[in-house]
Every structure is written in C-alpha cells, then in structure tokens.
C-alpha cells in the first residue's frame, strides 16, 4: 500500500498486476533519469565538461550523456565558462528556447560569480540573466564535482512538484 512515506509500493495480494504511485514521483523519476544537457561551453570549464562525457567519468551513468546542441531538445543548460556581456544575451536567448521543464547548472567560478574576471567585459554571475539551480565551485571544477552537481539537481527535481516547472520562465 502507498503510505505518505513510500513513493512506490507494491503488494501483489492486494493489487494484483497494478502498481500505485504518486504522479509526481513517476514524472520526476522520468525527468531525473534522462536529463539531457545543453552544453553551454564558453571557456576552459567546457574541457572538463567533455571529460565528464568521456569513458572515465561517464555521465551516462546518470542518464545525462546526450549532449544536445539544440536547445529544443535539452532539459538542463550547463553554463561552463566565462560569460561575457557580449555573449550574455545569446545565453539567455538559448535558455528561452529550451522547452520547459528546464534547469540550469552554473559550472565553475566564472559562471557562478564572474570568478577572477572582475572587469568591464564579464557578466558577474550567470544568475543575473538565467535562474540557476545548482552552482559548482572550482576553477575549473573537477569532473566529479559536475557529477555531484547533477546528482544534487536530480535530488532537487525528485523533491519538487512535477507541475511546478511546466510554466517556468
């Protein structure tokens, strides 16, 4: 039986061939296990992002190996690198073109806060133009750190109401 504490329950005597769950749990389970990234590689962090996709670190273990270079087909934008003011409108434009539900990971110091680029040319944190779900520290972060960020994002998605994201800006 389904109780408030169990997401998925199955009792063959009571239910026969039927599994009962909450819609949120089922939808979020689907979302978390195939979160296709939009690789917004802008600087050296993108090299670490490539390593995450490679055999050694293998982001495929978490269902996020399908790097889509089309915003229409991606769920999670990974901003990897320094965002200049000249590039910022394009980052926002690509984010706008992604279909909801969508999430953003700010990878590395530059994407999170401008990093060491306290200058006239650099956006001081990508959260000034897109809503960021997970920040990853590091310059650049280790591939493991990005995997950890992805797992944190999956945890976050599991806990939120599935309908919340459908109309997100």
């Amino acid at each position: 039986m389904v109780t408030p504490t169990t997401e998925l329950g199955y009792n063959s005597k009571v239910e026969g061939g039927v599994i009962v769950s909450r819609a949120d749990a089922a939808i979020n389970w689907i979302r978390t296990n195939s979160m296709w990234p939009m690789p917004m590689g802008l600087a050296c962090c993108a090299i670490e992002l490539m390593a995450v996709g490679g055999a050694r670190f293998d982001i495929a273990r978490f269902g996020a190996e399908v790097m889509r270079f089309s915003p229409r087909q991606s769920d999670c934008m990974i901003v990897a690198g320094t965002v200049t003011y000249k590039m910022a409108p394009q980052v926002r434009r690509i984010y706008d073109q992604m279909a909801a539900p969508k999430w953003v990971i700010a990878m590395g110091a530059c994407a999170s806060s401008g990093g060491m680029y306290r200058s006239y040319a650099t956006l001081q944190g990508v959260d000034r133009i897109v809503p960021v779900d997970v920040y990853v520290s590091g310059c650049p972060p280790r591939p493991e750190a990005l995997l950890d960020a992805l797992m944190k994002l999956q945890d976050k998605v599991r806990r939120e109401p599935a309908s919340k994201r459908l109309l997100s800006a």
Partner: peptide
C-alpha cells in the same frame, strides 16, 4: 576608463528588458 567598467545597457534590448540586467561596474 576604470577597470571595473561603467554601467551601461546590455547589447540586446529585449533581453535587457526581460532580465532587468545591466552591464554594471564589477565589484
């Protein structure tokens, strides 16, 4: 010209309006 920069508008007007962000003097 100061290293931090001078406050001005983002290059694309509709994105600037949508996000309410400006090119700011970096701290």
């Amino acid at each position: 010209f100061p290293l931090a920069g001078i406050e001005t508008d983002l290059p694309v007007a509709d994105i600037a309006e949508e996000t309410g962000t400006k090119v700011i003097a970096a701290p």
